[in-house]
Design a binder for these strands. Structure first.
Lengths: 250, 250
DNA sequence: TTAAGTTGTTCTCAGATTGAGTTGTTCTCA
DNA sequence: TGAGAACAACTCAATCTGAGAACAACTTAA
């Protein structure tokens, strides 16, 4: 940053007031559908609209810590379960008029969680709910949260290509079929079971075998499946490619 | 964000003071080396250290607009030349103690520019210079700018894989060899000329032919090269793959 | 003017990867 | 017990990649 501005004297009160919040696009998979954690606003502006969980950054808190705290508050999650949630920064949104009350810069985060219990009613009167992403129209969403969610979904789809983060939607041990279901849900495409299987096992460090198998076969038949846990790779080489789609504009 | 906080009364003065700045990691290629725009600090803290160009967001300015303004101020660039610079958001950095004076959240941006003239001395006493990225050690850099630069470089390397943004380092018309030189300097690997050529021409929308050729052959011989301009693709399908390297930890 | 060396571009070919389909076996449900 | 489902392995053709060779068009230096 530019020291001139500071040298002029840097009493915080001298600067235009900007509030910094952290918002979280928290994704999970329930019943083979991608769900998003949202909060119903009980007061204007955007009363009755859905909004992302979030709030002001605390004075001594890092941005990521703030996002994790907000996530914990709204989901009631803690300890090991909270630690297993993948959390990354998505981007910052700071259009001057995005909040009608004052200048707010929101640092949005993206979270991948395994299927979680329904949010507990908070001390706040917030109504927090996991909603299927398909059930949302931009009009029902507060502020620019529709845009943030779109960016989060695209980021999630893309992250599955070149990272092993799909495993973060699953329990610590999982089958290849469960892993494939994650990809199919997030990408919205059916995948070739045989090829997916071959690919997952051939990419180094994606998954490692536990040696165990499921107790039962599939719900509608089939043999018991082998169980795997996440491997130690942070990136997939070579990546899994999404089926070619129409050139996405952004 | 959480309306409870707001409903309690939202006079800006009631909140802990947070300043929001935009910083820019501006990259260009000079003499086959990747260069970075830096400013020498003339006052504490970090007096004499190098810092990224940046400054406070103006009250009615979007984050990206602020970054572009800072870039314009430090490079003296404007108009069409400025518009041709690629600018994207890199991420926000908000550790509570990253600036010793007060809480500052910096929204870092990443810029790709064609070879630009040396920065003009600003109205500020700032000394702005293009420095080769290899000439930098983390100790010479102010604040957490070393980290921001690392993140920016990694983002740049990765963006060349799946976007046509390498063309943003070049003039509006360029040869395949010039384009390959961009990849080689950013990635730090020599690439196979024939394979690169084949790949660039086969990826739809990466480049399109102008029909023209260079006036002269290469400096040390060789035929005249065909000239191309950027195509209309925003993403490369299939992507160009970086030569496999040791698993990068982050 | 010529020779030597460099470079842009195209081609070849083997190896790896992918997409699509098949097979065999194990399991659940009716 | 039989039918259907699903896991896992395999096959095969099409495509893509890495590595090298070929060749013509150009440069500079002799």
């Amino acid at each position: 940053m530019n020291e001139q501005d500071f040298l002029a004297g840097y009493d915080p009160r001298d600067y235009p007031a900007v509030a910094v919040t952290v918002d979280v696009v928290a994704l999970t998979i329930r019943e083979d559908a991608l769900h998003l954690l949202l909060i119903r606003r009980g007061a204007p502006p955007y009363e009755g609209h859905w909004a992302l969980p979030g709030g002001f950054v605390h004075p001594d808190e890092d941005l990521a810590a703030g996002a994790r705290r907000e996530l914990a508050e709204e989901t009631g999650l803690g300890g090991e379960r909270l630690r297993r949630v993948h959390l990354e920064q998505l981007g910052s949104y700071g259009a001057p008029d995005r909040d009608p009350r004052m200048r707010v810069v929101s640092v949005a985060h993206l979270a991948f969680a395994p299927d979680l219990p329904d949010p507990v009613a908070d001390s706040d009167a917030d109504e927090a709910i996991w909603l299927p992403v398909t059930a949302l129209t931009s009009r029902q969403l507060a502020f620019d949260h529709g845009r943030i969610i779109d960016d989060g979904l695209e980021r999630a789809r893309s992250k599955l290509e070149y990272t092993p983060l799909a495993t973060r939607f699953l329990a610590p041990e999982f089958t290849v079929t469960e892993l494939r279901a994650v990809y199919e849900t997030v990408w919205g495409h059916p995948l070739h079971a045989g090829n997916f299987h071959r690919k997952v096992l051939s990419v180094p460090g994606f998954v490692e075998s536990t040696g165990a198998s499921t107790e039962r076969g599939g719900a509608r038949g089939g043999p018991r499946a082998k169980l795997y846990r996440p491997g130690d790779a942070r990136l997939l080489h070579p990546a899994l490619l999404r089926p070619a789609r129409e050139e996405s504009i952004r």
